[in-house]
Design a binder for these strands. Structure first.
Length: 206
DNA sequence: AACATGATGATCT
DNA sequence: GATCATCATGTTC
């Protein structure tokens, strides 16, 4: 009989077949799902409350000028982690979304801590619980995510994966994306209306 | 609540 | 050499 770390009910990895085709659909689908991380101190998880889609032909996308060493995961099979360094100090977690061969991904911008907030504080410091995962850089810090997790299969129990979540359905708002200049008008950001755990200016979150 | 600024380094032109 | 899919801290309203 195999002994294995127990995964609590509801935190089991999503099957890849359950991920919708289409990266914009994936960005909507991931709202309310869980990001789960196996940390030395135990499992940590957050309920996703904010995502952004980066699509083919999208000048704001890292894949706009084709595949490079950095963005290669965006061109691989869906449901894998694309992790990159931004502004020289922070990491950001994306989920690859396109059919194999095209380069698309969903940026996970913010989440509501649901498990292991104490473990997250080890990497985030003494900040309000609300701010643990509010923003892509903060979320990556809270879950100790860096480039070593680039390419991780998010549909399998490992260091990092996606789970079903559940809980109350969220009302989803749509807005322009944050922090970009090219193709900035496109309505490709999704957020949980009324959630305190969403990042960005209040004016975008209505 | 809104805005300004500095930190800091890989990546690509 | 310019450009960032950001954050923390500061100032001003």
């Amino acid at each position: 009989m195999t002994v294995q770390t127990a995964i609590p009910e509801g935190f089991e990895p999503l099957g890849r077949h359950s991920l919708p085709d289409g990266t914009t659909e994936l960005a909507r689908f991931l709202m309310g799902k869980l990001v789960v991380r196996a940390l030395p101190a135990g499992l940590a998880a957050g309920r996703i409350v904010e995502t952004e889609a980066y699509l083919t032909g999208d000048a704001a996308s890292h894949a706009f000028r084709g595949m490079t060493a950095r963005n290669r995961v965006m061109f691989g099979p869906k449901g894998h982690a694309y992790v990159y360094l931004i502004y020289g100090m922070y990491f950001a977690l994306n989920v690859s979304g396109a059919a194999e061969g095209a380069g698309e991904a969903v940026l996970i911008r913010a989440a509501e801590p649901v498990l292991g907030a104490g473990a997250m504080a080890r990497y985030r410091g003494e900040v309000p619980e609300r701010d643990l995962m509010r923003g892509p850089g903060r979320l990556a810090m809270a879950l100790d995510i860096d480039r070593s997790l680039d390419g991780t299969d998010l549909c399998a129990a490992g260091p990092l994966w996606l789970a079903g979540g559940g809980g109350e359905p969220q009302e989803i708002g749509v807005s322009t994306r944050i922090g970009i200049s090219r193709d900035a008008h496109r309505p490709l950001r999704f957020f949980a209306k009324g959630s305190r755990y969403v990042s960005g200016p209040a004016s975008l979150n209505r």
